[in-house]
Design a protein around this nucleic acid. Structure first.
Length: 201
DNA sequence: ATATCGATGCCCT
DNA sequence: GGGCATCGATATG
């Protein structure tokens, strides 16, 4: 008989919905606040361990040059998704936020907790550690595509829930950008093994 | 451990 | 045509 992993999913948080005001804060603050939150897409996902902030005054941000067809969701309501295609092949998920238009938080990594079997099936049977370690990998594991661009994070298929335990977040420089590289708007859960890379200044 | 490279879509000049 | 908010494979210390 083949060795199978029996899933022992922890319970879904009873009230997943975060208040609308939660998303009305500047991207760096929301990026920090999202560390430790739980993100599920159709029940698959886990604890967010890595984020990055972007805003309209930021040369690294897709919203920097103003509204276009691709970034239109960044100028829509806070608390909705901005999903874009990266390097022609990957998808990346952001949470739109801020007190002015053009802000978003990129979800870069999470610690898988629920739906391990589905995530592994989508990711070629990789170990849990490698399922959601990076924004493109995370979207593949959770089946996030452009079809979810503009959708509310407070409605199916999304669940985004506040942490149930204390969170120690640390900051560093963002990854994979050329402009605005000094800005320390990358946040990570201290000590997590599920980061895409260690946090660096 | 770090470095380099190719794949690939599409927005923008 | 240039430039990516990436990934996986390969090469080398």
């Amino acid at each position: 008989m083949p060795m199978t992993i029996q899933e022992t999913d922890p319970p879904v948080p009873p009230d997943a919905r975060l208040p609308e005001a939660f998303y009305r804060q500047p991207p760096p603050r929301l990026a920090r606040a999202l560390i430790g939150c739980r993100l599920f897409v159709d029940g698959a996902g886990g604890r967010i361990v890595e984020t990055e902030a972007y805003d309209a005054d930021d040369p690294a941000s897709h919203s920097f040059g103003g509204r276009t067809l691709r970034n239109a969701s960044m100028f829509g309501p806070p608390g909705h998704a901005y999903v874009y295609r990266s390097y022609g092949l990957h998808w990346c998920l952001n949470v739109v936020c801020g007190t002015v238009p053009g802000g978003a938080v990129l979800i870069r990594a999470l610690e898988p907790e629920r739906g391990l079997d589905r995530m592994q099936a989508r990711r070629g049977g990789l170990a849990p550690r490698d399922l959601c370690r990076g924004p493109g990998r995370l979207c593949q594991a959770l089946a996030v595509t452009g079809a979810l661009d503009g959708c509310s994070m407070s409605a199916p298929p999304f669940i985004l829930a506040a942490p149930v335990e204390g969170v120690a977040a640390i900051a560093g420089r963002r990854i994979g950008i050329t402009r605005g590289a000094e800005t320390p708007w990358r946040f990570g859960l201290a000590g997590s093994r599920f980061l895409s890379r260690p946090l660096r200044d």
